[in-house]
Deep mutational scan, measured.
Amino acid sequence: MAAAAAAGAGPEMVRGQVFDVGPRYTNLSYIGEGAYGMVCSAYDNVNKVRVAIKKISPFEHQTYCQRTLREIKILLRFRHENIIGINDIIRAPTIEQMKDVYIVQDLMETDLYKLLKTQHLSNDHICYFLYQILRGLKYIHSANVLHRDLKPSNLLLNTTCDLKICDFGLARVADPDHDHTGFLTEYVATRWYRAPEIMLNSKGYTKSIDIWSVGCILAEMLSNRPIFPGKHYLDQLNHILGILGSPSQEDLNCIINLKARNYLLSLPHKNKVPWNRLFPNADSKALDLLDKMLTFNPHKRIEVEQALAHPYLEQYYDPSDEPIAEAPFKFDMELDDLPKEKLKELIFEETARFQPGYRS
């Protein structure tokens, strides 16, 4: 834990890192770190609560700039109880001085990944967590956004079992017609939660990839272990087919990539493993919904509104309290091709509203 900075004593240090967030945020305490930044909790002297502050230093890398800009653009436009918001952003007053960006968010005690390492969940908890994931996802999908990296560590939890989806750095506007060349190379989302079509096709992607990830998360809540822990690309596919069985001819016809289709045709026939054999203690309604989410063919996979209306979630289902976005989200430009200098300018502009004396 960093010592509390005395008023006016300059930035606090946390594990050798400068955290320049005073005077409003003090009493910093280390939480963890990701690929390009550290997260601390801090005391907000204005709202009198502890908050989470993520320090991001992305400006050396085009990919990190892209992810940072995506996350900020999306989260500043989203407003939903099951999606983490941005409360404040701290950065230098000029673009030349801006080396880091500090993002202030609600402090959540833990995440689903940490929880599943230590606790076996009751059916009631599984049901409530799944409902909140789908409630947040309904809003995301209504904005025409794909999260693309749903996994237990991106689901934040607090002691009252509130759940918030975080990390929109890989999110995209849904565009089933656009052929994202190089899709697989830039697709760094965790393999275990990846839909089979991501490994088999490169053309376009749809909201059904997020539903697949939610199915993987439900299976993990039922058993405290990942359902498809593939060691590499082909191993991942083999794990999936080992449980779902061989795809039907109709399902194979959806695979545009001939090499991928021929690979699947070359494999020995596998039978589907019954879900109640894998999860003998699970609620039968939970397994019915799991089956509809972990469907090989993305066109037959359940959609988020149908999933919310499934009998497993009937005690929570309330369409009048499951809000959607006001308007579909649009990125003005494809960020993939922009140089990091341009992305830095866009991050600077996007964060201006939090600067003292800002006038829109």
Rank of each mutant, 00 (worst) to 15 (best):
A4C: 00
A7K: 04
G8K: 02
E12C: 05
E12P: 00
E12M: 00
M13C: 01
V14A: 12
G16L: 09
G16N: 02
R24T: 07
Y25T: 02
Y25P: 05
T26C: 11
E33N: 00
G34E: 13
A35G: 15
A35N: 12
N47A: 07
V49C: 11
R50G: 07
V51P: 11
K55T: 02
S57D: 04
P58Y: 15
E60S: 14
E81A: 08
I83M: 00
I83H: 04
G85N: 01
G85T: 05
N87F: 08
I90F: 14
R91W: 01
T94V: 01
T94A: 00
D100F: 12
I103D: 07
V104S: 01
E109R: 04
E109F: 02
Y113I: 12
T118I: 12
H120W: 10
S122G: 12
S122L: 12
I126M: 11
I126L: 07
I126N: 13
L134Q: 15
G136M: 03
K138P: 06
A143K: 04
L146K: 05
H147Y: 12
R148M: 03
S153T: 07
N154D: 00
L155H: 01
L156D: 04
L156G: 11
D167S: 08
L170N: 06
R172G: 11
V173T: 01
D175Y: 14
P176R: 09
T181P: 01
F183K: 09
W192Y: 08
W192F: 12
S202G: 10
K207I: 10
S208C: 09
D210F: 05
W212F: 10
V214F: 11
G215A: 10
I217E: 06
I217N: 15
E220W: 05
P226F: 02
P229A: 10
H232R: 01
D235G: 02
L237A: 11
N238I: 15
H239C: 09
E250L: 04
E250D: 05
L258T: 07
A260N: 10
L264P: 12
S266H: 03
H269W: 05
H269F: 00
K272Q: 09
F279G: 05
A282D: 14
A282H: 05
D288H: 00
D288K: 09
L290R: 08
M293D: 03
H299V: 09
K300V: 08
E303S: 03
E303I: 01
E305P: 06
L308W: 10
L308R: 05
Y316W: 03
P323D: 00
A325T: 13
A325E: 14
E326N: 01
F329N: 10
F329Q: 09
K330N: 13
M333V: 00
K340Q: 01
K340G: 09
K340I: 07
I347T: 01
F348G: 04
F348K: 10
T351C: 03
F354C: 11
G357M: 09
R359D: 10
S360L: 13
